[in-house]
Amino acid sequence: MDETGKELVLALYDYQEKSPREVTMKKGDILTLLNSTNKDWWKVEVKITVNGKTYERQGAVPAAYVKKL
């Protein structure tokens, strides 16, 4: 869990989004888990830093590609 009490997951593999509802992640990324009720796809929040600014993006990733921490 992070400092706000939200559950975290670890990306076990790289994943490139294939639709606007998904998010890209790299192996080793730590993501915030938002919903894991679907056994195949979990909704997560990814933090992306671009030019020193951090953005948050929500989307789905394959459940088999992440592990709860």
Rank of each mutant, 00 (worst) to 15 (best):
M1T: 13
M1Q: 13
M1Y: 12
M1R: 13
M1S: 12
D2H: 14
D2Y: 12
E3W: 12
E3R: 12
T4V: 13
G5Y: 12
K6S: 10
K6C: 14
L8F: 14
L8A: 06
L10N: 02
L10I: 15
L10T: 05
L12F: 02
L12D: 00
Y13A: 10
Y13W: 10
D14Y: 04
D14P: 04
D14V: 06
D14N: 07
D14M: 05
Y15Q: 02
Y15S: 00
Y15E: 01
E17P: 14
E17A: 15
K18R: 14
K18F: 05
K18D: 05
S19N: 11
P20C: 11
R21V: 10
R21Q: 14
R21P: 04
E22P: 04
E22I: 04
V23Y: 03
V23W: 05
T24A: 05
T24H: 02
M25C: 06
M25L: 08
M25H: 02
M25W: 02
M25S: 00
K26L: 07
K26H: 09
K27I: 05
K27S: 06
G28W: 04
G28P: 02
G28L: 03
G28K: 02
I30L: 07
L31T: 01
L31I: 06
L31N: 00
L31P: 00
T32N: 06
T32Y: 09
L33T: 00
L33V: 05
L34Y: 02
S36C: 14
S36E: 15
S36M: 10
S36N: 07
N38E: 10
N38H: 11
N38G: 10
N38D: 15
K39H: 10
D40K: 12
D40L: 13
W41C: 06
W41M: 06
W41D: 00
W42P: 00
K43S: 11
K43T: 15
V44C: 02
E45K: 11
E45Q: 12
V46Y: 08
V46E: 01
V46I: 14
V46D: 00
K47V: 12
K47W: 08
K47D: 03
K47S: 12
K47E: 07
I48H: 08
I48D: 04
T49E: 11
T49P: 03
V50T: 08
V50F: 09
V50H: 09
N51V: 04
N51A: 10
G52A: 05
G52E: 06
G52C: 08
T54P: 07
T54W: 07
T54E: 09
T54G: 05
Y55K: 07
Y55F: 12
Y55S: 08
E56T: 15
E56I: 15
R57Q: 05
R57K: 13
Q58E: 08
Q58K: 08
Q58D: 04
Q58A: 10
G59C: 06
G59K: 00
G59A: 04
G59P: 01
G59W: 07
A60V: 15
V61N: 02
V61C: 06
P62Q: 02
A63F: 03
A63M: 04
Y65D: 02
Y65C: 15
Y65K: 05
Y65L: 14
V66P: 04
K67E: 11
K68L: 14
K68P: 08
K68N: 05
L69Q: 03
